[in-house]
């Protein structure tokens, strides 16, 4: 989260609510390592990344739900996608992404 912290703080000080999504587990080959993170605001802005662009749009939607409900979520993306969404990783690995509201 450190890399995107300056942007998160800029958003927070402007009064936006922010959710952060972090890669917490990687199995096999994945575009970004554990610790990679992205943040989104309640106004629809986005910074950082958790993959090479493969799952960001879905994480973005999930993050909006996290902001709406205030409940964190653990997401799993892989080639054998356990979720109903039509998103996954091109490189064949599996990642878990934890999405939580920042400082709420």
């Amino acid at each position: 989260m450190k890399d995107i912290l300056p942007q998160i703080e800029t958003w927070r000080s402007a009064g936006h609510r922010v959710a952060v999504a972090t890669v917490v587990k990687v199995e096999g080959s994945a575009p970004r390592p554990v610790g990679a993170s992205m943040a989104v605001t309640d106004s629809g802005e986005l910074t950082g990344s958790v993959s090479g662009g493969c799952v960001e749009t879905n994480v973005f939607e999930e993050a909006q739900e996290v902001l709406r409900t205030g409940e964190p979520r653990l997401l799993r993306y892989g080639i054998t996608d356990e979720m109903a969404w039509d998103v996954g990783l091109a490189c064949g690995g599996t990642i878990e992404v934890f999405v939580e509201p920042v400082a709420e």
Binding site: L5, F98, E100, V102, A103, E104
Partner: peptide, 28 residues
Amino acid sequence: MTDAIALHERYLRAVQERTPVATVTVIR
């Protein structure tokens, strides 16, 4: 200030002061 805000502020201060810091978050 809620606990979550206090924790975030503590983490933020450590990063700004370049002090090594770890966060532990329950994910399951």
